[in-house]
Design a binder for these strands. Structure first.
Lengths: 338, 338
DNA sequence: CTGAAAGCGCTAACAA
DNA sequence: TTGTTAGCGCTTTCAG
């Protein structure tokens, strides 16, 4: 038989389709005579029966899938996060469903729509902005959501983030210990909470250390990307204000700083110390290896998936967010001030 | 209305559900009075109607999705390929559906099964091995497939690959020009066609250049991965046979060679020239920047998607495979023999 | 414990 | 050009 249906199983087992359905579903198997159930299961196996999830979804309005919305899969931080999500979901009945928005809001709306049409049980977003009408709307419609890396302002959505502030504080401390006092900050977009939080933490950390926060050497990038980082670095270097170290909003931005530095014939760390954020894959192999803040990316994924499963299993539980610890990883891109 | 159905649209537009269906589907709209069609469409919009793809799939046994089976998303070559697939599919009605096998055959079977249950219209595989029972079986069942990067022996499946042999020949030429004669080869798994083809090409290229092919400095890695590369490099370096350059099966393996070299206090390119394959993202930022063969990864993706669309649109067309050109990119990891 | 019957939302014959 | 009817494969009342 090409593709045996439940009906096929039922008839060859000599029972009604409904009984076969009950026998095959572990949750309803108790309603069925143990012998019959065993027989049905055996028949199903011998026929190579595979339940049609589409028919099931149509009936139950569920899908056993979790949508994962990612801004850009080519950003190396996402594969480890995805891996974490997959692994944590592995033991459950759910499968992740990845979509790529390309940082395009319209595309995000379309993709989320189609995901919802496919009856996903929940959505994990890595695309959150501090103001995010789509997420606000979904929240109102009681769509199950978990955010990773970034929060939305003023809406209670469970979020898994790294301790951005602690990371920045550790970085400032490290640079200060090396004797740097003129520390530039080249942050990510302030439209994202991680960009915002890291910048606020920077200012606070500087003042806590008794270092001057000079707005002339603090700027933001348009995007969490290498080219945006290079543009920002150029702006900083073209300015009149001197600095001996720069904290980049993330590793990709730091990469852009490397590029710009090289283009100008400057050297890191001799001319400028550089620090990144995330410790993305292979960033330790750079020339020079990048000093950065390690974010437990895989764990961000596992925690997000776990939070989603909790949301599904225990709807009543209050909304909680998880904050994961980070760790400064000192490598070759930072050196004592000369 | 929470989630209006086709029936809702039909009744408020004063027509039968079937008519509404015809009016809403561009392919059948011609069968409907232009005025009625317009009215139905307007009603659908005002109600915020979104067709339920699950119901549609159940009826049509189609899904408007293409499955993409990837061995390991954390390998940086796949995101660009995915991006290519997405972009090329973008203009069509199809959406890609990514799954990660983790290089696990059992997992691959399960995932492919579920993809097929979801009525995907075709499958793009990046996981092919030269002997691949699953793919052979799918081929027999006339499942639409396109392979990327790797072929299966003896089965006619459309495949998009880079010109592996040409790449290896260019590398050997480059190293020979630099004066290297003792060239080691640290290939990928021979169970994959790319591993096999690159190795065969190496042997041929060496003899074509009049260089000695010494099996003592030719070995294979267990996997296309950094740690496997380090293990292989150790094997080579522990051997008695001398060599001044090594060709790695891909960039990840080359990364492993870097690691092992560093662990032994050796330097690249002073002590050993290293060449990779693929030109994966950020590999140009290494210390030293890796000389490698650029594979047009994005184009691999677009071509694969295009091939899939052709398979769907023109079932009669003979099976064709596409071979994409590669280009040697010389960077700092190769130097004249000293 | 099991069967009958209905229906999830949509599309495709077939009829009118 | 439109409506009627049936059914994709499954689950879930409701009877029995």
């Amino acid at each position: 038989m090409a593709n045996p249906t439940l009906r096929d199983v039922a008839t060859t087992a000599g029972v009604h389709a409904a009984t076969a359905s009950r026998a095959l579903n572990p949750k309803t198997r108790g309603l069925v005579n143990a012998e019959t159930a065993k027989r049905v299961i055996r028949v199903a196996e011998s026929l190579g029966y595979r339940p049609n999830p589409i028919a099931r979804s149509l009936k139950t309005a569920k899908s056993a899938t979790i949508g994962v919305v990612i801004p850009d899969l080519t950003n190396p931080i996402f594969p480890p996060i995805m891996r974490g999500i997959e692994d944590a979901l592995g033991s459950s009945d759910y499968n992740p469903w990845i979509v790529n928005t390309d940082n395009d809001f319209a595309r995000e709306e379309i993709l989320v729509d189609s995901l919802r049409n496919l009856q996903v049980e929940g959505l994990i977003f890595a695309t959150a902005r501090r103001q995010h009408p789509l997420l606000a709307r979904l929240r109102e419609n009681d769509v199950r959501m978990v955010l990773v890396n970034r929060k939305v302002d003023g809406i209670g959505i469970p979020t898994v983030t790294a301790d951005d502030a602690a990371g920045v504080i550790a970085v400032v401390h490290h640079l200060a210990e090396l004797g740097h006092t003129r520390i530039a900050f080249l942050g990510g977009p302030l439209s994202t909470s991680s960009g915002y939080v890291r910048k606020v933490a920077f200012r606070q950390a500087m003042s806590d250390r008794g270092l001057e926060y000079d707005p002339a050497i603090v700027t933001d990038c348009e995007a969490w990307a290498e080219d945006a980082g290079a543009v920002g670095a150029a702006r900083l270097l073209d300015g009149a204000a001197p600095f001996t170290a720069v904290i980049a909003g993330n590793d990709l931005i730091a990469l852009g700083v490397y590029d710009e530095l090289r283009a100008r014939g400057l050297r890191c760390p001799e001319d400028l110390s550089i620090v990144g954020f995330n410790d993305m894959p292979y960033i330790d192999k750079l020339d020079p290896p990048l000093t950065t803040v390690r974010v437990p990316l895989y764990e961000v994924g596992t925690e997000a998936a776990r939070a989603m499963l909790e949301l599904i299993d225990e709807p009543g539980r209050p909304i909680r967010s998880v904050l994961l610890p980070v760790k400064l990883v000192v490598r070759g891109s930072t050196a004592p001030r000369r």
